[in-house]
């Protein structure tokens, strides 16, 4: 409901709703419906229904005090931060080399680092899982993080490559000619210039990891389940209001992350527009 009013209030300039406006409102309602329904179900006193019949904050509070969910959220967050940090760190030298490398080498590098985008992530997860089970007999949190680094790396490689294309090599040469070491040149000249690409890449990697399901479902160790896996296992058997409440907190978390991205680099990183 909120969705439709948000759209129609946006076009107060046109007194008569256009066909496009109506169709777009329906499409928008479809996009946001699951999120609103989850929140509605979380505020419901009795069973899992939407629209809710009797409102309560009981489940929302209960979700915050149930240790296993809080742990799950923490694990998801830590995995996403570590994976995004490593994939951005790895992507930096790759993107910088891509700029200087001869075309043939650049093509091989691009293919190597973009390869994970071509393979469905569930199949890569199966591959990594079978190797690790064969080698170690178990899976653990660092293996899960390794999986996340692989699937998130294409994003920082791409965003950093996009900014290095506009980088003037003369600036780095100038720093070198006045005696700056390569490291010094990198820190005080190159890095500040490519900072937007680095931040955008990190955030993309973070969201991809935070959002991941298929890698985690294979590589999650039993005792350290990230939040999505925990929710998934509940959903396989029963729907409880507390799961809706946990999900609602997670939606709020995602909304805050999007807000931060909007403030830091703008939402244009998602629509691919360079401003």
């Amino acid at each position: 409901m909120t969705a439709t009013t948000a759209v129609s209030s946006g076009k107060a300039r046109w007194p008569v709703p256009t066909g496009l406006g109506i169709a777009a409102s329906c499409a928008f309602a479809f996009v946001v419906a699951p999120l609103i329904v989850v929140a509605g179900a979380a505020l419901n006193a009795e069973a899992m229904f939407f629209p809710p019949r009797q409102l309560t904050l009981r489940w929302m509070m209960a979700a915050l005090t149930e240790g296993s969910f809080v742990n799950g959220a923490l694990i998801s967050f830590v995995v996403a931060v570590v994976a995004a940090a490593f994939s951005t760190l790895f992507a930096l030298p790759v993107a910088l080399q891509l700029r200087k490398a001869p075309p043939a080498v650049a093509r091989i590098l691009t293919l190597s680092f973009m390869g994970p985008l071509l393979v469905p992530s569930i199949i890569f997860a199966l591959a990594l899982y079978s190797v690790m089970i064969y080698a170690f007999g178990v899976t653990n949190l660092s293996i899960l993080m390794i999986g996340h680094v692989i699937i998130t790396m294409p994003y920082p490689v791409r965003t950093i490559t996009a900014v290095t294309e506009h980088l003037d090599p003369a600036l780095e040469d100038a720093a070198g000619s006045v005696g700056a070491s390569p490291w010094r040149t990198f820190v005080s000249v190159t890095l500040p210039l490519i900072k937007p690409g680095v931040i955008a890449g990190f955030l993309f990697a973070f969201i991809t990891s935070w959002n991941d399901f298929s890698i985690s479902v294979f590589l999650t160790p039993r005792e350290l389940q990230p939040l999505p896996i925990k929710i998934y296992e509940y959903l396989l058997y029963q729907y409880r209001p507390i799961i809706a409440a946990v999900s609602t907190w997670s939606v709020i978390g995602s909304a805050i992350i999007v807000l931060i991205i909007d403030r830091l680099v703008g939402l244009n990183v998602f629509t691919g527009r360079r401003s």
């Binding site: 946006g10 928008f28 699951p34 999120l35 939407f50 959002n211 999505p228 959903l235």
Partner: peptide, 30 residues
């Protein structure tokens, strides 16, 4: 506003979005 809602929807975990759809579509649901 509309763009950010689409981005939020994208950044919510797939399991949660499926959960919402299921509540909406289940028999006896909305």
């Amino acid at each position: 506003l509309l763009t950010s809602m689409v981005v939020v929807s994208l950044s919510v975990n797939i399991v949660i979005r499926i959960f919402g759809l299921n509540v909406l579509l289940m028999s006896g649901g909305a």
